[in-house]
Design a protein around this nucleic acid. Sequence first.
DNA 1: CCGAATCCGGCTCGATACTG
DNA 2: CAGTATCGAGCCGGATTCGG
Lengths: 213, 213
Amino acid sequence: MAARDYGQYSGISQALELIGERWALLIVRDLLVGPRRYGELAAGLPRIPSNILATRLKELQAAGVLRRVPRSRVIVYELTPYGRELEPVVLALGAWGFKALGEPRDEQVITRESLTIDLRTAFRPQVAAALPATAYRARLGATELLIRVDGPALDVASGDGPADLAFATGPDLRRVITGELAPDRAIATGVVEVLHGPGGLLDRFASTFHLAA
Amino acid sequence: MAARDYGQYSGISQALELIGERWALLIVRDLLVGPRRYGELAAGLPRIPSNILATRLKELQAAGVLRRVPRSRVIVYELTPYGRELEPVVLALGAWGFKALGEPRDEQVITRESLTIDLRTAFRPQVAAALPATAYRARLGATELLIRVDGPALDVASGDGPADLAFATGPDLRRVITGELAPDRAIATGVVEVLHGPGGLLDRFASTFHLAA
DNA sequence: CCGAATCCGGCTCGATACTG
DNA sequence: CAGTATCGAGCCGGATTCGG
Protein backbone atom coordinates (compact mmCIF):
# COMPACT_ATOMS: atom_id res chain seq x y z
CA MET A 1 0.00 0.00 0.00
CA ALA A 2 2.95 2.26 0.60
CA ALA A 3 4.56 1.32 -2.68
CA ARG A 4 2.29 3.14 -5.10
CA ASP A 5 1.59 5.90 -2.64
CA TYR A 6 2.23 9.57 -3.28
CA GLY A 7 3.63 9.83 0.21
CA GLN A 8 2.27 13.28 0.89
CA TYR A 9 -0.11 14.50 3.54
CA SER A 10 -2.20 16.94 1.57
CA GLY A 11 -5.69 17.34 0.22
CA ILE A 12 -4.84 16.81 -3.41
CA SER A 13 -2.66 13.77 -2.99
CA GLN A 14 -5.36 12.24 -0.81
CA ALA A 15 -7.95 12.98 -3.48
CA LEU A 16 -5.74 11.47 -6.15
CA GLU A 17 -5.28 8.34 -4.12
CA LEU A 18 -9.05 7.97 -3.95
CA ILE A 19 -10.09 8.89 -7.49
CA GLY A 20 -6.82 9.39 -9.37
CA GLU A 21 -6.57 5.96 -10.95
CA ARG A 22 -7.31 5.54 -14.60
CA TRP A 23 -11.05 5.53 -15.48
CA ALA A 24 -12.14 6.32 -11.92
CA LEU A 25 -13.33 9.86 -12.53
CA LEU A 26 -15.18 8.85 -15.68
CA ILE A 27 -17.12 6.31 -13.63
CA VAL A 28 -17.91 9.05 -11.14
CA ARG A 29 -19.00 11.34 -13.95
CA ASP A 30 -21.46 8.80 -15.30
CA LEU A 31 -22.83 8.11 -11.82
CA LEU A 32 -23.39 11.83 -11.32
CA VAL A 33 -26.11 11.53 -13.94
CA GLY A 34 -27.81 8.85 -11.87
CA PRO A 35 -27.42 5.32 -10.48
CA ARG A 36 -26.28 2.83 -13.07
CA ARG A 37 -25.93 -0.90 -13.43
CA TYR A 38 -22.67 -2.59 -14.22
CA GLY A 39 -23.65 -3.14 -17.82
CA GLU A 40 -24.82 0.41 -18.24
CA LEU A 41 -21.49 1.70 -16.99
CA ALA A 42 -19.68 -0.65 -19.33
CA ALA A 43 -21.84 0.53 -22.24
CA GLY A 44 -21.17 4.19 -21.39
CA LEU A 45 -17.42 3.58 -21.29
CA PRO A 46 -16.94 1.38 -24.36
CA ARG A 47 -13.17 1.15 -24.01
CA ILE A 48 -12.92 0.15 -20.38
CA PRO A 49 -11.86 -3.46 -19.84
CA SER A 50 -14.31 -5.34 -17.69
CA ASN A 51 -11.72 -6.30 -15.10
CA ILE A 52 -10.75 -2.67 -14.69
CA LEU A 53 -14.36 -1.63 -14.27
CA ALA A 54 -14.89 -4.31 -11.63
CA THR A 55 -11.69 -3.32 -9.83
CA ARG A 56 -12.50 0.40 -9.88
CA LEU A 57 -15.98 -0.19 -8.56
CA LYS A 58 -14.54 -2.04 -5.60
CA GLU A 59 -11.90 0.60 -4.96
CA LEU A 60 -14.38 3.46 -5.19
CA GLN A 61 -16.67 1.60 -2.86
CA ALA A 62 -13.84 1.11 -0.37
CA ALA A 63 -13.03 4.81 -0.69
CA GLY A 64 -16.58 5.73 0.26
CA VAL A 65 -17.31 7.30 -3.11
CA LEU A 66 -20.02 4.92 -4.26
CA ARG A 67 -22.30 2.21 -2.97
CA ARG A 68 -23.41 -1.13 -4.38
CA VAL A 69 -27.16 -1.28 -3.95
CA PRO A 70 -29.47 -4.20 -4.70
CA ARG A 71 -32.57 -2.81 -6.34
CA SER A 72 -35.41 -5.12 -7.32
CA ARG A 73 -33.31 -8.16 -8.23
CA VAL A 74 -30.56 -6.18 -9.95
CA ILE A 75 -27.55 -4.35 -8.58
CA VAL A 76 -27.04 -0.66 -9.17
CA TYR A 77 -24.11 1.54 -8.27
CA GLU A 78 -24.81 4.96 -6.87
CA LEU A 79 -22.70 7.74 -5.44
CA THR A 80 -22.57 8.29 -1.71
CA PRO A 81 -23.12 11.84 -0.42
CA TYR A 82 -19.35 12.18 -0.29
CA GLY A 83 -19.10 10.98 -3.86
CA ARG A 84 -21.69 13.48 -4.97
CA GLU A 85 -19.50 16.22 -3.55
CA LEU A 86 -17.23 15.55 -6.52
CA GLU A 87 -19.69 17.28 -8.81
CA PRO A 88 -17.96 20.70 -8.62
CA VAL A 89 -14.66 18.98 -9.32
CA VAL A 90 -16.02 17.13 -12.31
CA LEU A 91 -17.70 20.23 -13.70
CA ALA A 92 -14.60 22.36 -13.26
CA LEU A 93 -12.42 19.73 -14.86
CA GLY A 94 -14.90 19.28 -17.67
CA ALA A 95 -14.98 23.00 -18.35
CA TRP A 96 -11.21 23.05 -18.52
CA GLY A 97 -11.00 20.07 -20.84
CA PHE A 98 -13.86 21.27 -23.01
CA LYS A 99 -11.79 24.24 -24.10
CA ALA A 100 -9.09 21.92 -25.38
CA LEU A 101 -11.43 19.80 -27.48
CA GLY A 102 -10.59 19.86 -31.13
CA GLU A 103 -12.26 18.06 -33.96
CA PRO A 104 -13.59 14.66 -32.92
CA ARG A 105 -11.80 11.61 -34.20
CA ASP A 106 -13.79 8.86 -35.83
CA GLU A 107 -13.36 6.42 -32.99
CA GLN A 108 -14.53 8.89 -30.36
CA VAL A 109 -18.04 8.40 -29.09
CA ILE A 110 -20.42 10.76 -27.35
CA THR A 111 -22.51 9.07 -24.72
CA ARG A 112 -25.65 10.23 -23.05
CA GLU A 113 -23.85 10.58 -19.73
CA SER A 114 -20.90 12.52 -21.07
CA LEU A 115 -23.17 14.84 -23.00
CA THR A 116 -25.37 15.40 -19.98
CA ILE A 117 -22.41 16.42 -17.86
CA ASP A 118 -20.96 18.57 -20.63
CA LEU A 119 -24.28 20.39 -20.82
CA ARG A 120 -24.28 20.87 -17.06
CA THR A 121 -20.77 22.24 -17.39
CA ALA A 122 -21.80 24.79 -19.98
CA PHE A 123 -25.10 25.67 -18.30
CA ARG A 124 -25.37 29.28 -17.13
CA PRO A 125 -28.05 29.41 -14.43
CA GLN A 126 -27.98 33.17 -14.06
CA VAL A 127 -28.56 33.63 -17.79
CA ALA A 128 -31.26 30.98 -17.89
CA ALA A 129 -33.07 32.54 -14.96
CA ALA A 130 -33.77 35.62 -17.04
CA LEU A 131 -35.18 33.63 -19.95
CA PRO A 132 -38.53 31.87 -20.32
CA ALA A 133 -38.69 28.19 -19.49
CA THR A 134 -37.72 26.19 -22.56
CA ALA A 135 -37.55 22.55 -23.52
CA TYR A 136 -35.18 21.38 -26.25
CA ARG A 137 -35.01 17.97 -27.84
CA ALA A 138 -31.53 17.37 -29.20
CA ARG A 139 -30.49 14.41 -31.27
CA LEU A 140 -26.76 13.95 -31.43
CA GLY A 141 -25.93 10.97 -33.54
CA ALA A 142 -27.86 8.12 -32.01
CA THR A 143 -28.52 9.68 -28.62
CA GLU A 144 -31.60 11.73 -28.04
CA LEU A 145 -31.87 14.08 -25.09
CA LEU A 146 -34.66 16.13 -23.65
CA ILE A 147 -33.20 19.28 -22.15
CA ARG A 148 -35.52 21.24 -19.93
CA VAL A 149 -34.49 24.65 -18.68
CA ASP A 150 -36.77 26.27 -16.15
CA GLY A 151 -35.39 29.36 -14.51
CA PRO A 152 -32.01 28.53 -13.02
CA ALA A 153 -32.80 24.79 -13.04
CA LEU A 154 -31.57 22.33 -15.65
CA ASP A 155 -32.89 18.85 -16.23
CA VAL A 156 -31.47 16.54 -18.85
CA ALA A 157 -33.27 13.29 -19.55
CA SER A 158 -33.33 10.77 -22.31
CA GLY A 159 -36.55 9.83 -24.02
CA ASP A 160 -38.96 12.17 -25.64
CA GLY A 161 -41.53 14.65 -24.52
CA PRO A 162 -42.86 17.96 -25.73
CA ALA A 163 -40.17 20.40 -26.77
CA ASP A 164 -40.21 23.98 -27.97
CA LEU A 165 -37.32 23.28 -30.27
CA ALA A 166 -36.12 19.96 -31.66
CA PHE A 167 -32.88 19.74 -33.57
CA ALA A 168 -30.38 17.22 -34.84
CA THR A 169 -26.68 17.94 -34.74
CA GLY A 170 -23.23 16.44 -34.34
CA PRO A 171 -20.02 17.02 -32.41
CA ASP A 172 -19.72 20.44 -34.02
CA LEU A 173 -22.37 21.60 -31.59
CA ARG A 174 -19.28 22.35 -29.51
CA ARG A 175 -18.51 25.25 -31.81
CA VAL A 176 -21.92 26.74 -31.08
CA ILE A 177 -21.35 26.40 -27.34
CA THR A 178 -17.94 28.03 -27.49
CA GLY A 179 -19.37 30.88 -29.50
CA GLU A 180 -17.14 30.05 -32.41
CA LEU A 181 -20.16 29.43 -34.62
CA ALA A 182 -23.21 31.68 -34.47
CA PRO A 183 -26.55 29.86 -34.16
CA ASP A 184 -27.93 31.15 -37.45
CA ARG A 185 -24.71 30.19 -39.22
CA ALA A 186 -24.94 26.75 -37.64
CA ILE A 187 -28.38 26.28 -39.15
CA ALA A 188 -27.38 27.78 -42.48
CA THR A 189 -24.36 25.49 -42.81
CA GLY A 190 -26.26 22.41 -41.71
CA VAL A 191 -24.31 21.90 -38.50
CA VAL A 192 -27.65 22.07 -36.74
CA GLU A 193 -30.77 20.80 -38.47
CA VAL A 194 -34.01 22.11 -37.06
CA LEU A 195 -36.59 19.32 -36.84
CA HIS A 196 -39.37 21.17 -35.12
CA GLY A 197 -40.11 24.62 -33.78
CA PRO A 198 -38.67 28.05 -34.53
CA GLY A 199 -34.97 27.98 -35.35
CA GLY A 200 -34.57 31.28 -33.60
CA LEU A 201 -34.75 29.41 -30.31
CA LEU A 202 -31.25 28.13 -31.01
CA ASP A 203 -30.10 31.61 -30.03
CA ARG A 204 -31.60 31.06 -26.62
CA PHE A 205 -29.94 27.67 -26.43
CA ALA A 206 -26.57 29.21 -27.22
CA SER A 207 -27.05 31.87 -24.55
CA THR A 208 -28.05 29.28 -21.98
CA PHE A 209 -25.21 26.90 -22.76
CA HIS A 210 -21.96 28.73 -23.26
CA LEU A 211 -18.34 28.10 -22.50
CA ALA A 212 -15.71 30.52 -23.74
CA ALA A 213 -12.87 28.94 -25.64
CA MET B 1 -2.03 7.06 -29.61
CA ALA B 2 -5.43 5.46 -29.89
CA ALA B 3 -4.49 2.51 -27.72
CA ARG B 4 -4.48 4.14 -24.30
CA ASP B 5 -7.19 6.58 -25.26
CA TYR B 6 -10.50 6.97 -23.45
CA GLY B 7 -12.21 7.14 -26.81
CA GLN B 8 -14.76 9.72 -25.79
CA TYR B 9 -15.44 13.17 -27.11
CA SER B 10 -16.18 15.04 -23.92
CA GLY B 11 -14.68 17.68 -21.68
CA ILE B 12 -13.70 15.41 -18.86
CA SER B 13 -12.12 12.69 -20.91
CA GLN B 14 -10.15 15.35 -22.76
CA ALA B 15 -9.02 16.83 -19.45
CA LEU B 16 -7.99 13.42 -18.18
CA GLU B 17 -5.98 12.77 -21.29
CA LEU B 18 -4.07 15.98 -20.67
CA ILE B 19 -3.56 15.85 -16.89
CA GLY B 20 -4.93 12.46 -15.84
CA GLU B 21 -1.68 10.54 -15.76
CA ARG B 22 -0.11 9.67 -12.49
CA TRP B 23 1.73 12.59 -10.78
CA ALA B 24 0.66 15.12 -13.39
CA LEU B 25 -1.75 17.08 -11.24
CA LEU B 26 0.71 17.17 -8.34
CA ILE B 27 3.23 18.81 -10.65
CA VAL B 28 0.57 21.32 -11.65
CA ARG B 29 -0.24 21.95 -8.00
CA ASP B 30 3.37 22.75 -7.16
CA LEU B 31 3.69 25.02 -10.18
CA LEU B 32 0.58 26.90 -9.08
CA VAL B 33 2.68 28.18 -6.21
CA GLY B 34 5.22 29.58 -8.64
CA PRO B 35 7.76 28.63 -11.31
CA ARG B 36 10.09 25.86 -10.23
CA ARG B 37 13.26 24.22 -11.38
CA TYR B 38 13.52 20.53 -12.13
CA GLY B 39 15.32 19.85 -8.89
CA GLU B 40 12.82 21.88 -6.88
CA LEU B 41 9.97 19.86 -8.32
CA ALA B 42 11.81 16.65 -7.55
CA ALA B 43 12.42 17.82 -4.00
CA GLY B 44 8.78 18.73 -3.54
CA LEU B 45 7.65 15.31 -4.78
CA PRO B 46 10.10 13.03 -3.00
CA ARG B 47 8.59 9.80 -4.29
CA ILE B 48 8.42 10.63 -7.98
CA PRO B 49 10.97 8.74 -10.09
CA SER B 50 13.14 11.08 -12.07
CA ASN B 51 12.26 9.50 -15.40
CA ILE B 52 8.56 9.98 -14.67
CA LEU B 53 9.12 13.60 -13.75
CA ALA B 54 11.00 14.17 -16.97
CA THR B 55 8.31 12.39 -18.99
CA ARG B 56 5.45 14.29 -17.37
CA LEU B 57 7.14 17.63 -17.90
CA LYS B 58 7.41 16.86 -21.60
CA GLU B 59 3.80 15.68 -21.81
CA LEU B 60 2.45 18.67 -19.93
CA GLN B 61 4.46 20.93 -22.14
CA ALA B 62 3.05 19.27 -25.25
CA ALA B 63 -0.43 19.62 -23.76
CA GLY B 64 0.06 23.36 -23.40
CA VAL B 65 -0.13 23.25 -19.61
CA LEU B 66 3.37 24.39 -18.82
CA ARG B 67 6.40 25.99 -20.44
CA ARG B 68 10.10 25.34 -20.18
CA VAL B 69 11.73 28.72 -19.69
CA PRO B 70 15.45 29.55 -19.57
CA ARG B 71 15.96 32.08 -16.81
CA SER B 72 19.39 33.46 -16.10
CA ARG B 73 21.38 30.33 -16.95
CA VAL B 74 18.94 27.89 -15.39
CA ILE B 75 15.72 26.36 -16.65
CA VAL B 76 12.44 26.85 -14.83
CA TYR B 77 9.05 25.37 -15.53
CA GLU B 78 6.03 27.61 -15.30
CA LEU B 79 2.36 27.20 -16.04
CA THR B 80 0.91 28.68 -19.20
CA PRO B 81 -2.25 30.78 -18.88
CA TYR B 82 -4.20 27.67 -19.80
CA GLY B 83 -2.40 25.70 -17.12
CA ARG B 84 -3.17 28.36 -14.55
CA GLU B 85 -6.85 27.87 -15.32
CA LEU B 86 -6.50 24.57 -13.49
CA GLU B 87 -6.37 26.41 -10.19
CA PRO B 88 -10.12 26.08 -9.49
CA VAL B 89 -9.90 22.38 -10.33
CA VAL B 90 -6.95 21.85 -8.02
CA LEU B 91 -8.57 23.79 -5.20
CA ALA B 92 -11.88 21.95 -5.55
CA LEU B 93 -10.14 18.61 -5.66
CA GLY B 94 -7.98 19.55 -2.71
CA ALA B 95 -11.01 20.56 -0.67
CA TRP B 96 -12.65 17.25 -1.43
CA GLY B 97 -9.57 15.22 -0.55
CA PHE B 98 -8.84 17.29 2.55
CA LYS B 99 -12.03 16.04 4.13
CA ALA B 100 -10.88 12.46 3.75
CA LEU B 101 -7.50 13.02 5.38
CA GLY B 102 -7.01 10.93 8.47
CA GLU B 103 -4.02 10.73 10.71
CA PRO B 104 -0.75 11.19 8.84
CA ARG B 105 1.43 8.15 8.38
CA ASP B 106 5.08 8.35 9.30
CA GLU B 107 6.30 8.27 5.73
CA GLN B 108 4.01 11.08 4.61
CA VAL B 109 5.65 14.45 4.16
CA ILE B 110 4.19 17.94 4.07
CA THR B 111 5.92 20.21 1.61
CA ARG B 112 5.85 23.92 1.33
CA GLU B 113 3.93 23.73 -1.95
CA SER B 114 1.31 21.29 -0.75
CA LEU B 115 0.75 23.29 2.41
CA THR B 116 0.48 26.52 0.46
CA ILE B 117 -2.22 25.08 -1.76
CA ASP B 118 -4.03 23.47 1.15
CA LEU B 119 -4.12 26.87 2.83
CA ARG B 120 -5.47 28.45 -0.34
CA THR B 121 -8.09 25.72 -0.40
CA ALA B 122 -9.22 26.46 3.12
CA PHE B 123 -8.98 30.23 2.76
CA ARG B 124 -12.28 32.07 3.13
CA PRO B 125 -11.91 35.46 1.45
CA GLN B 126 -15.30 36.75 2.53
CA VAL B 127 -14.53 36.01 6.17
CA ALA B 128 -11.05 37.45 5.91
CA ALA B 129 -12.34 40.63 4.33
CA ALA B 130 -14.20 41.46 7.53
CA LEU B 131 -11.14 40.94 9.72
CA PRO B 132 -8.08 43.15 10.22
CA ALA B 133 -5.04 42.40 8.11
CA THR B 134 -2.94 39.78 9.86
CA ALA B 135 0.39 38.09 9.31
CA TYR B 136 1.07 34.63 10.71
CA ARG B 137 4.35 32.76 10.80
CA ALA B 138 3.71 29.05 10.93
CA ARG B 139 6.36 26.40 11.43
CA LEU B 140 5.19 22.95 10.47
CA GLY B 141 7.94 20.47 11.01
CA ALA B 142 10.86 21.82 9.05
CA THR B 143 8.95 24.16 6.76
CA GLU B 144 8.35 27.72 7.78
CA LEU B 145 5.68 29.83 6.10
CA LEU B 146 4.75 33.46 6.29
CA ILE B 147 1.01 33.76 5.77
CA ARG B 148 -0.24 37.24 5.10
CA VAL B 149 -3.96 37.92 5.02
CA ASP B 150 -5.01 41.36 3.94
CA GLY B 151 -8.70 41.78 3.32
CA PRO B 152 -9.80 39.15 0.82
CA ALA B 153 -6.22 38.61 -0.39
CA LEU B 154 -3.95 35.77 0.72
CA ASP B 155 -0.22 35.57 0.26
CA VAL B 156 1.83 32.60 1.37
CA ALA B 157 5.58 32.85 1.21
CA SER B 158 8.49 31.06 2.72
CA GLY B 159 11.14 32.93 4.67
CA ASP B 160 10.55 35.19 7.59
CA GLY B 161 9.20 38.63 8.16
CA PRO B 162 7.20 40.38 10.82
CA ALA B 163 4.20 38.43 12.03
CA ASP B 164 1.42 39.19 14.47
CA LEU B 165 1.34 35.57 15.56
CA ALA B 166 4.04 32.94 15.24
CA PHE B 167 3.32 29.33 16.07
CA ALA B 168 4.75 25.87 15.62
CA THR B 169 2.50 22.92 14.91
CA GLY B 170 2.23 19.59 13.12
CA PRO B 171 -0.15 17.71 10.83
CA ASP B 172 -2.86 17.96 13.49
CA LEU B 173 -3.32 21.56 12.41
CA ARG B 174 -5.80 19.91 10.08
CA ARG B 175 -8.09 19.31 13.04
CA VAL B 176 -8.09 23.02 13.79
CA ILE B 177 -8.97 23.82 10.19
CA THR B 178 -11.82 21.32 10.10
CA GLY B 179 -13.18 22.75 13.33
CA GLU B 180 -12.70 19.44 15.07
CA LEU B 181 -10.31 21.03 17.53
CA ALA B 182 -10.98 24.46 19.00
CA PRO B 183 -8.04 26.90 18.86
CA ASP B 184 -7.75 27.29 22.63
CA ARG B 185 -7.85 23.50 23.05
CA ALA B 186 -5.17 23.18 20.40
CA ILE B 187 -2.92 25.45 22.39
CA ALA B 188 -3.80 23.82 25.70
CA THR B 189 -3.04 20.34 24.39
CA GLY B 190 0.18 21.40 22.73
CA VAL B 191 -1.01 20.74 19.16
CA VAL B 192 -0.17 24.36 18.49
CA GLU B 193 2.71 26.00 20.30
CA VAL B 194 2.62 29.78 20.36
CA LEU B 195 6.09 31.19 19.74
CA HIS B 196 5.27 34.86 19.58
CA GLY B 197 2.25 37.11 19.86
CA PRO B 198 -1.15 36.67 21.48
CA GLY B 199 -2.49 33.14 21.28
CA GLY B 200 -5.97 34.53 20.85
CA LEU B 201 -5.07 35.32 17.26
CA LEU B 202 -5.31 31.60 16.53
CA ASP B 203 -9.07 32.09 16.68
CA ARG B 204 -8.79 34.51 13.82
CA PHE B 205 -6.62 32.04 11.96
CA ALA B 206 -9.22 29.29 12.43
CA SER B 207 -11.97 31.59 11.16
CA THR B 208 -9.92 32.59 8.15
CA PHE B 209 -8.89 29.06 7.23
CA HIS B 210 -11.75 26.66 7.58
CA LEU B 211 -12.96 23.58 5.77
CA ALA B 212 -15.88 21.63 7.16
CA ALA B 213 -15.28 17.92 7.55
C1' DC C 1 -27.98 -12.17 -20.27
C1' DC C 2 -25.77 -9.77 -16.38
C1' DG C 3 -21.90 -9.27 -13.43
C1' DA C 4 -18.05 -10.23 -12.97
C1' DA C 5 -13.33 -13.58 -12.49
C1' DT C 6 -9.34 -15.40 -14.98
C1' DC C 7 -5.50 -15.43 -17.98
C1' DC C 8 -1.96 -13.29 -20.49
C1' DG C 9 0.93 -9.86 -23.42
C1' DG C 10 2.59 -5.32 -23.32
C1' DC C 11 3.47 -1.23 -21.51
C1' DT C 12 3.65 2.10 -17.62
C1' DC C 13 5.53 2.89 -13.46
C1' DG C 14 9.00 2.68 -9.74
C1' DA C 15 13.83 2.20 -8.30
C1' DT C 16 18.42 2.82 -9.17
C1' DA C 17 22.45 3.86 -11.76
C1' DC C 18 24.57 6.81 -14.73
C1' DT C 19 26.00 10.95 -17.72
C1' DG C 20 26.94 15.86 -19.71
C1' DC D 1 21.87 20.09 -11.55
C1' DA D 2 19.05 18.24 -15.10
C1' DG D 3 17.94 14.92 -16.91
C1' DT D 4 18.79 9.76 -19.54
C1' DA D 5 19.30 4.56 -19.33
C1' DT D 6 18.14 0.28 -17.74
C1' DC D 7 15.45 -3.25 -15.73
C1' DG D 8 11.99 -5.74 -12.85
C1' DA D 9 7.22 -5.53 -10.94
C1' DG D 10 2.76 -4.75 -11.63
C1' DC D 11 -1.08 -2.26 -13.77
C1' DC D 12 -3.66 -1.92 -17.86
C1' DG D 13 -5.95 -3.71 -22.02
C1' DG D 14 -8.12 -7.51 -24.63
C1' DA D 15 -10.21 -11.81 -24.81
C1' DT D 16 -12.27 -15.60 -22.90
C1' DT D 17 -14.70 -18.02 -19.37
C1' DC D 18 -17.75 -18.64 -15.50
C1' DG D 19 -21.66 -18.43 -12.11
C1' DG D 20 -26.42 -16.95 -11.10
